[in-house]
Each structure stands twice: as structure tokens, then as C-alpha cells.
Amino acid sequence: MQNKNITVVKSMDVLNLFLHHSELTLNEMVELLGVPKTSVHRMVGSLETMGFLQKNNEGKYLLGLQFLQFGQLVADRLDIRQLALPIMKELRDKAKEAVNLIIKDGNDAIYIEKLDTPHPVRLYTKVGRRAPLYAGACSRIILAFLKKEEQEHYLQETELTAIGTGTITDKDRMRQVLADARKFGYTISYSELENDTVSIAAPIFDHTGCLAAGLSIAGPDSRFGTDRLPELIDSIKNAAKEISFRLGYREGN
């Protein structure tokens, strides 16, 4: 680290100010940095020339449009499957249950990655499998974190048809389950897509704070006793948070 370029480091100090301030005058930057005004003026001038800072009509500086280009490139190049897979493997190895990654596709959820349990008794799922958003924990966690108006439109337009013995078909009950999922950050399903199964799911968010995917662990109900649920819930929530973090999500996004 001894060969850091001091000018680059100090320029980053300038840019880091805008993580917490939408706009700043030159004097405000000088005060916040505790650096001579001539040095700050020189760095700000260079950053403005390169498009990383821009000055508004009031003479205040804000982040330049160059960041939009770089930010979009980073977002476009993020592969959620690639980012999620190492965390999914850790979760599978810890929980010893199947782990699924699901995204929204129209009115369905589609499995885009899965890892099987090491147990001989397992659920049948595959990449590309679809499920309605209302049925099953991993699908429902996506529905739970949609915008309220989009969620309500879906419920009004969709018939909640039973798939397994535990599928929720009452819309008022569904609204309460969705509200609980948003409140607690996870949801559980019992025999909703397949009988005698349990699934626990948590949401994954992207760098804009929007829902990106759902993550779940699932298996036969015989392995999901009430004594084990708190540990599994913590594990799935923590794994989903880690994937969100790697996607650029921060609390308060």
C-alpha cells in the first residue's frame, strides 16, 4: 500500500464527500477535508474537467454525469447468479437443505439457480421451473416486496388456485401474510407447491434498493421442525443480505 498515488487518494477523498452531501461549495469541501484551499481547488478542477464533478448555476458542485455511465456499466455487468452462488453453497452446506434463487418473470417466479441437499430425500426442482407469485415462500417473497399498487393489482387480477394442500387461496389472508413478510423480512410456506414440504425465503435487493430476487431453503417438513426454524430463518436472512450487499445494496438505499 506504500505505492498509493497521493493525488488519486486525495481526489477520492473529495468524491467521498458526495456520499453524504448532494452538493457542496468549494469552501465547504475545504472545511470538511481540512486541506488547503489551493489543493482542493486543483483537485476539483481536474475532476470537473474529467466529468466526475459538475458545477450548478449556484456555484455548488455535485457528482457529474460520468458516474451515471460507470454506474450503469457496473449494474449491467453484475451477474446475480455468479454473485449468489458462493453464498448459496455456504448456506446449503450449513443448512444441509436445497437452496433456490428465483427472480420475477411476468406473473411468475422462475428458478435461475439451485443447489440440491446432500440428503437422499429431496425435493424435485430445476433451473427454469416456474411458479405463480402467490404460491410457495420463494415466489411469495417476491410478491411481498413489490410496490404496493403492483402487488394489489396482481391480487385483484389473479385467481389463487390451490396447488398443494397448504396453498393460500383466501386473498385477505394472503394480504396479511404479505404484510408480515415485509415486516419480518422473510416468509414460510407449508405444502403450498408440493405436499409435505416447507420453504423459507428472504428478499434480495439491488444497488437501487429495488427487489432483485428471492432466496429460499426448502425440504421435507420432517426436517423443518419448530425447534430448527429460528436458526434456518436467521441463515436465510443473512445469506440474502450478503447477496444484496454484493449487488451494491445498502440500508437506506
Score class of each variant (00 low, 15 high):
67 F>R: 02
68 L>D: 11
68 L>I: 15
69 Q>D: 11
69 Q>K: 12
70 F>G: 13
71 G>R: 12
72 Q>A: 08
72 Q>C: 10
75 A>K: 06
75 A>N: 03
76 D>W: 10
76 D>G: 10
81 R>F: 03
83 L>P: 00
83 L>M: 01
84 A>V: 02
85 L>T: 04
86 P>F: 04
87 I>L: 07
87 I>G: 01
89 K>L: 05
89 K>W: 01
89 K>Y: 01
90 E>D: 04
91 L>A: 01
92 R>P: 02
92 R>M: 13
92 R>C: 11
92 R>E: 12
93 D>F: 09
93 D>P: 00
93 D>T: 10
94 K>T: 13
95 A>I: 03
96 K>L: 11
96 K>R: 15
97 E>M: 07
97 E>I: 11
98 A>Q: 09
99 V>K: 06
99 V>G: 09
100 N>Q: 15
101 L>D: 03
103 I>G: 04
106 G>S: 07
109 A>G: 15
109 A>I: 09
111 Y>P: 00
112 I>A: 00
112 I>R: 01
115 L>N: 05
116 D>W: 07
117 T>F: 01
118 P>I: 05
119 H>Q: 14
120 P>H: 04
122 R>E: 14
123 L>F: 07
124 Y>D: 12
124 Y>F: 13
126 K>H: 14
126 K>Q: 15
126 K>E: 14
128 G>I: 08
131 A>N: 12
135 A>T: 08
136 G>D: 04
137 A>C: 03
137 A>D: 08
141 I>L: 03
142 I>Q: 05
144 A>L: 10
145 F>S: 08
